[in-house]
Design a protein around this nucleic acid. Structure first.
Lengths: 339, 339
DNA sequence: GCGTGTCAGTGAAACCTTTCAATAAGGCGG
DNA sequence: CCGCCTTATTGAAAGGTTTCACTGACACGC
């Protein structure tokens, strides 16, 4: 707990040790230039006074920090924490610290974090934005390197690393159609999320190419992409009369898929016999689920790592050019679609 | 990307707008004291120059920030992200931003984060430490409020919020003994983690109280508490001759339990018939697992929220007294132990 | 017409660190 | 004994913001 007194500064330490403040700074930053005797004296003074370097003052002088930040859409989604680990490993190699910020899918929170980070002069910001076209991002990228993760923009004003969501959605639904399904549900929301829209688009594409009827794909909207949303969607699905009810579901992510799966079990249905399920992301838990989950795999750690590398290039290379790295997703078939 | 020019400061804005720097500061901090005309002029100058407030300079002046940080042991473990959400909700109510830092169970990384945060004069630090008795923590708490999460210390120099791990371990193993098991594995590691040790202790207690033989509890050590560690432990378990092989396993957390569960399926065993499994934490995925997992539930969000409240009290209340909040865990029985 | 009060705007000081040119002290060769 | 070199130390300046006591200007009431 902070005592009453103002915390000690280099000046206080200098006084205590009977040296000039320049010497104290030298002890801190270039100890080899200070004689052993004085260094010791200064160090003791620091200990006595409980001196703690003031990072704000340092940064003010230095102009910037050795800090990266990742503003993520949902900490509770293992997909994003895996991406964060990829970023982290790249950051650690460059001796940069990484701060994680959870926007929780809220544009206001995201904006607050982005503003704070840019004012803090971090080296760079990675972000999975609620809306990649937000004007705030354009504003910030003028002075702070920003890389968009798990999204892209049509213009080329940002670097980004993402998987091809349309291709992923297509893979998922092609797989279901291959397995003979002709009434398929697409489960996800909110539609404001690009991920939700594009995976849907891919799903539609697959239907069209296979010559399925327009209404073969039933869109069941959800409020979010969490566990609970999947369960709720399950209830609604069960409510549909059997002859019109889809025999397969493609979920916008694995959390929703796992929630759906759980709801199916709870209400005594069997997966994949009563309902085949495909998820998206292939998080670790997908393979460990009640019925191991077929899912569209994204290279999560790699995605984070590449994004961080783009950021570091943007931060340090004067000839930097914006690049969009697109990863191709891949279907991992498991029991939830194989009967 | 930063242009060649030094970024604009209040002085530059003042010059551009033809006012004094004090007025610019007033526009920023007390706009009501500035006439509409000048305010507009200043705001336009800011826009023209792309002025971005320098947070370091602000903090230097102010002495501290509206920032909290949580240094977590493992971002990839949903238990900790749930705790983080609890912290977040309390922080948001007080209009504080929360930064998440992942120590990844590495004392060096943890130390680097803690040092940086204290030097940054954050309002407070929450931490699930690798070692709650680290001297660095004692050092830091002298000037920055620190609350220990998911651990406690014997002395009362810190606030902390945690669940009773010994009680939890005991619950888990009592349950297994009730179900008739007499050869039980305890799976977890590394022993440097207090969580691992105390849950083990609780397990031993349960055995002793039920009059089981000394060697009824077989400790299978793991390198960490992840998915992969659980799978690996599964392989080792299977390698044990059938007559000596445990018929039940208590895992130090759910990730390990889920890994173990998966390994059992992969090698054609049935849970709970071949092996009953109890996990710890009751993360959301536990209920959705291949075989829904019996687990020891901790109130994860509540734990985070209480910890944050303790921190905020410590940061703002001069009469603050350190408190140790202990939550009592509760067993949630599911199919992985019920046959 | 004068004192008083209000309002808008001013500018110096403080926050703490780092850097760098300058100084002091000491040793050495000539 | 002097000048020169090295090494240790110094102190002022800079970095950007906020605060606060202060100045002008203006309106109002008497």
């Amino acid at each position: 707990m902070a005592g009453g007194a103002r915390s000690a500064s280099v000046v206080d330490v200098a006084a205590e040790a009977g040296v000039s403040l320049g010497t104290v700074s030298n002890v801190l930053n270039r100890p080899e230039r200070v004689s052993d005797a004085t260094r010791l004296r200064v160090e003791k003074a620091m200990a006595r006074l409980g001196f703690v370097r003031n990072e704000s003052a340092r940064q003010l002088r230095a102009g910037q920090s050795r800090l990266l930040a990742y503003v993520m859409l949902d900490v509770a989604n293992p997909f994003f924490t895996d991406v964060a680990q990829g970023i982290d490993s790249a950051a650690a190699e460059h001796e940069l610290a990484l701060f994680l910020c959870n926007s929780a899918n809220d544009a206001g929170r995201e904006a607050a974090y982005l503003t704070h980070l840019s004012q803090q002069r971090v080296q760079g910001i990675l972000v999975t934005p609620v809306d990649p076209h937000s004007p705030l991002l354009e504003e910030i990228v003028k002075h702070t390197p920003v890389v968009i993760v798990d999204r892209t923009r049509d213009d080329k004003r940002f670097c980004s690393a993402a998987a091809d969501d349309v291709a992923g959605g297509r893979l998922a639904v092609e797989h279901l159609i291959d397995r003979g399904h002709t009434r398929i549900a697409y489960i996800g929301g909110p539609p404001s999320l690009g991920q939700v829209r594009e995976r849907h688009e891919g799903a539609l594409l697959a239907c069209r190419e296979s010559g399925l009827a327009e209404d073969a794909l039933l869109h069941i909207g959800t409020d979010g992409l969490g566990f609970a949303d999947g369960r709720e969607a399950g209830e609604r699905l069960i409510g549909i009369p059997a002859k019109r009810r889809p025999t397969a579901a493609f979920c916008a992510n694995d959390l929703v898929a796992l929630g759906l799966l759980q709801q199916m079990s709870l209400s005594g249905r069997t997966v994949p016999d009563d309902l085949a399920i495909v998820g998206f992301d292939d998080i670790d838990f997908a393979g460990a689920a009640a019925v191991p989950l077929t899912s569209v795999r994204q290279p999560r750690r790699e995605l984070g790592r590449r994004a961080a590398e783009l950021l570091l290039d943007e931060a340090s290379n004067p000839d930097h050019e914006h690049r969009q790295v697109i990863f191709t997703p891949e279907l991992v078939a498991r029991r939830s679609t194989l009967n």
